[in-house]
Simulated scan of single mutants.
Amino acid sequence: MADSTELPRTRPAGSAQALSEAYDTALLDLDGVVYAGGVAVPHAVDALRVARGGGMRLAYVTNNAARTPETVAEHLTELGVPATADEVVTSAQAVARLIAERVPAGAPVLCAGGVGLRVALTERGLTPVDSAEDEPAAVVQGYGGPELPWGVLTEAALAVNRGVPWFASNTDLTIPSGRGIAPGNGAAVEVVRIATGHTKDPVVAGKPLPPMHRETILRTGARRPLVVGDRLDTDIEGAQAGDVDSLLVFTGVTDPATLLTAVPEHRPTYLAADLRGLLTPHPEVLPAGDGFRCGGWLATAGPDGRPEVRAVEGAEGGDPLDGLRALCAAVWTAGGVDDRSWAAGALGALGL
């Protein structure tokens, strides 16, 4: 198991054990990791079944506040991943806890979101209301889907302008959908921010911020958690903020070029093509001459930061992800690179 305190990370870590054996609980993002547009990501169902069968606990952690844990669990079970509501943790639950800690029991809360957010507030003993005229003790925004009425944003803005404390489940500007990338809750938050003169900021609970990690640990009791996600700015940054290890999978938002150009707080502990990466050991990345070697690949970064990778003589290259691991080590150790064309050039040698 990697030492998550060794930051900033300068290379992906190795693991002699399968990650499902090295960690007791996988804290899995959903969109782009387990499913995309309501359909299971390739290999996800089988990989999660094997991981669970081997004793790893699974928790599904999502910034999407629109659906209840029961609805999410039913969807997962329909996809072939048996899940119960208590294995699902949402940003709606995290923000509801934050609000309940700051307002009186039973207080009215103006809810600008979907059913998942309303249920989470009710479970914390709060009273969801719909109007700024209901004298809310707080305003909370959470993703409500494309059917979220414009009028509810008006009510939220009116209340925030009156000085009512403002909360948001998360501020993801976009969310994956079956038809492509759609506006997320962060876009709705920006509408209210604009209407309030850009002078206020909500208290935010979701990934990558600590309240979401706290909610996840409280609900799962994980002792050796591994965060699994597809987004650097929520999943991986959230893992670092929580001082736990992470696995990045390339089935969602992040591509290899984005990983190579990642800032220190966005660098994962491990990387894999998909959730099958939970079931295998991960190779070490080792210094080799003026670069780094992983498997059959040797990577270097020149004085200007331009990365290069080549097959080790006699090794015939091998797994392209080993080459990516070596490239990450070379680039990150050299201080990073922000030129995606350089990253793309090096990745072309790997077919990535």
Results as ranks from 00 to 15, higher is better:
residue 1 M to R: 03
residue 3 D to S: 01
residue 5 T to G: 11
residue 7 L to K: 06
residue 8 P to T: 02
residue 16 A to G: 14
residue 17 Q to R: 13
residue 20 S to C: 13
residue 20 S to I: 00
residue 20 S to K: 00
residue 26 A to K: 00
residue 27 L to V: 12
residue 30 L to G: 00
residue 31 D to V: 06
residue 43 H to N: 15
residue 45 V to N: 05
residue 47 A to Y: 05
residue 48 L to F: 10
residue 50 V to E: 11
residue 53 G to H: 03
residue 56 M to L: 13
residue 57 R to P: 09
residue 60 Y to R: 08
residue 63 N to M: 13
residue 64 N to W: 07
residue 68 T to C: 00
residue 74 E to R: 12
residue 80 G to F: 11
residue 81 V to P: 01
residue 82 P to Y: 05
residue 84 T to S: 10
residue 93 Q to P: 03
residue 95 V to W: 03
residue 95 V to Q: 03
residue 100 A to H: 07
residue 102 R to M: 07
residue 105 A to E: 15
residue 105 A to C: 13
residue 107 A to Q: 06
residue 109 V to R: 01
residue 111 C to V: 12
residue 116 G to M: 12
residue 121 L to P: 02
residue 122 T to F: 08
residue 123 E to P: 01
residue 124 R to Y: 04
residue 129 V to R: 05
residue 129 V to S: 08
residue 130 D to E: 13
residue 131 S to Q: 09
residue 133 E to K: 10
residue 133 E to D: 15
residue 138 A to H: 10
residue 147 E to T: 09
residue 149 P to M: 10
residue 151 G to F: 12
residue 151 G to Q: 14
residue 153 L to G: 10
residue 153 L to C: 11
residue 157 A to F: 06
residue 159 A to K: 04
residue 163 G to W: 09
residue 170 N to S: 15
residue 171 T to E: 15
residue 172 D to F: 08
residue 175 I to E: 01
residue 179 R to I: 06
residue 184 G to R: 10
residue 184 G to D: 14
residue 184 G to I: 14
residue 185 N to W: 00
residue 185 N to Y: 01
residue 186 G to F: 04
residue 186 G to W: 00
residue 196 T to A: 14
residue 198 H to E: 15
residue 200 K to G: 06
residue 201 D to S: 13
residue 203 V to H: 12
residue 209 L to D: 05
residue 211 P to R: 10
residue 211 P to C: 13
residue 214 R to T: 15
residue 214 R to Y: 09
residue 215 E to S: 14
residue 217 I to V: 14
residue 219 R to A: 14
residue 219 R to N: 06
residue 220 T to W: 08
residue 221 G to Q: 12
residue 221 G to E: 11
residue 224 R to M: 09
residue 224 R to F: 11
residue 226 L to W: 02
residue 230 D to N: 14
residue 233 D to V: 12
residue 241 A to P: 01
residue 242 G to F: 11
residue 244 V to C: 09
residue 246 S to A: 14
residue 246 S to T: 09
residue 248 L to T: 01
residue 250 F to Q: 02
residue 251 T to H: 00
residue 252 G to Y: 07
residue 256 P to A: 10
residue 258 T to P: 01
residue 260 L to D: 00
residue 260 L to M: 13
residue 265 E to L: 04
residue 265 E to K: 04
residue 266 H to R: 10
residue 273 A to H: 09
residue 275 L to E: 07
residue 276 R to M: 11
residue 277 G to N: 13
residue 285 V to W: 01
residue 287 P to K: 12
residue 290 D to M: 05
residue 290 D to T: 08
residue 291 G to Q: 06
residue 292 F to P: 01
residue 294 C to T: 13
residue 298 L to T: 06
residue 301 A to W: 02
residue 304 D to E: 13
residue 304 D to Q: 12
residue 311 A to P: 09
residue 321 L to H: 07
residue 324 L to T: 07
residue 328 C to T: 06
residue 331 V to E: 07
residue 331 V to H: 04
residue 332 W to S: 03
residue 333 T to D: 14
residue 333 T to F: 07
residue 338 D to H: 05
residue 341 S to V: 07
residue 349 A to Y: 01
